[in-house]
Amino acid sequence: MPIVNINVNGKLVSAEVEGRTLLVQFLRENLRLTGTHVGCDTSQCGACVVHVDGKSVKACTMLAVMADACEVTTIEGLANNGSMHPMQQAFMDNHGLQCGFCTPGMVMTALDIVNRNGNDLDDSTVRKELEGNICRCTGYHNIVKSVKAGAKTMGE
């Protein structure tokens, strides 16, 4: 079986995996990083979004072997010494979640939005950029507020 060496949240991980092991399975089942969720498993809902070499990807639609020699950041990699990342804090402050299932993917996508669009975001940009993340609770209104607020704090 192939061996992968992946830097996950700053730690080098080496493991033997089947070719067919999805990146999301590897994170959840091998590394027990269960913050990355599996919603639809068909690359539509975005609950499994993580960053690979700084870019957002759907971890249900990438093989673990494809992430060999890459840097992977999951939701668990954001907090710093027990204090939440500004984007996580913004979701908490703005009630950007209800059941919370989609939230890890939303936060990882939000950070990708900030990386590409900067810290001063308008509603339409955020809504368009969130097209690959589905939330069945909130109606998105507070998620959009959270992303904008988190982006702003990150720029300060």
Partner: peptide, 9 residues
Amino acid sequence: IGDPAVRNR
């Protein structure tokens, strides 16, 4: 095409 994460791959 698709969404941002799909376009990254």
